[in-house]
Design a protein around this nucleic acid. Structure first.
Lengths: 189, 189
DNA sequence: AATCTATCAGTCGAAAACGACTATTGACGA
DNA sequence: TCGTCAATAGTCGTTTTCGACTGATAGATT
């Protein structure tokens, strides 16, 4: 029984992937990365899978090999694993947690950039974000047009909605800084 | 020179706090927690501060003690630390990164809960989120009314905006699931 | 006065995460 | 056809992060 409760975000991702079909870790990595996942460390993934096996949520399903490549161990979800997946899903959806994104952490000290620096940085972010939103929306539309059920890309819709809200927020603060209605206090408190 | 680039989110938080005034780690912890920060591990904080000292971004400013309590080492931001803070701030604002919140990870497998389970969980999240938004908005208003400059609570405004967008999104998908316009494919692909 | 509890402040061994390293195969251009 | 490059798979030593532990003090309780 591991002391730490396997709270790595990868846990959910791996269980979720295995819900679709058994695979080997390297394949998971490829899939996860394709699904737009943030950079995932390979070593970590193997560690997580090992921990999942120890927890009894996942079980090796035999090995295969192509040519003389290293053996690939294929893993499948166990019944316990399925239960755990549902439990986590449910709890992570039910309970909103305060999450600390890099941007949130940075905005907190926006003052340190001064009004001009802040406007400059925010404007660039807005530009890049807008580009990404456009690209993601296009991609999403293409995927949907190809017949993939909407439910399978629902997280992309959520991400898009959040990105659009962020963009709008950035637009409004930038405008307020420019207009002088959001002032930068000088050091003295 | 550390091999890994000190990319813990705490780094920015600590540098930011020290921008205001020198303190000792325990105090940072209290402040950070009061600022609504997620649960921060004490051991980690001491490790991070140590790493910051090694990086030359922070320097011990002498020690003090109250009664026979353990000595408290007070740290201050160095000039290099100030530069680094600005560099990070600027880069983290300029460059949007795909961040993976727990909720995003969970929504991706919403299908595993089935339509009823999904609606149930989403509805509860919406309720809790709405409560939190109301509480945070009140708190924000109170703080502003007490004379704190808006810039100092700007990150709370951002968090509120994101939370509101999330709430709206949850409302619309929940409605779509209920209405049957967002269908749950049965296993078979 | 004695005990209980909460807060203060930090240390340190153990667990988790990282990323550099190994080794093989298939594709592509020189 | 030889060499380089990208992709395939996984291992393992090092770093980072965690959280249980120590131990002291001030205030509340019996």
């Amino acid at each position: 029984m591991p002391r730490r409760a396997l709270d790595n975000p990868l846990v959910l991702a791996v269980l979720g992937l295995l819900l679709e079909h058994p695979t080997h870790p390297y394949q998971m990595l490829t899939d996860l990365r394709a699904r737009g996942g943030a950079a995932i460390n390979r070593g970590t993934l193997y560690d997580v899978v090992e921990a999942l096996v120890a927890a009894g949520w996942v079980a090796p399903q035999g090995t295969e090999r192509t040519g003389n490549r290293p053996e690939r161990t294929v893993y499948a979800l166990t019944d316990d694993g399925h239960d755990e997946l549902v439990r986590r899903l449910d709890s992570q959806i039910r309970t909103p947690r305060r999450e600390f994104t890099q941007f949130l952490g940075a905005v907190a000290y926006l003052g340190a950039l001064g009004p001009d620096g802040a406007v400059d940085a925010l404007t660039e972010r807005a530009r890049r974000l807008a580009d990404r939103i456009a690209a993601d929306a296009d991609h999403l539309a293409a995927v949907l047009a190809s017949g993939v059920p909407r439910l399978h890309v629902i997280e992309a819709e959520y991400a898009l909605a959040q990105a659009r809200a962020e963009l709008a927020w950035i637009g409004s603060v930038t405008e307020e800084i420019r207009a002088g209605s959001l002032t930068f206090p000088t050091r003295e408190d």
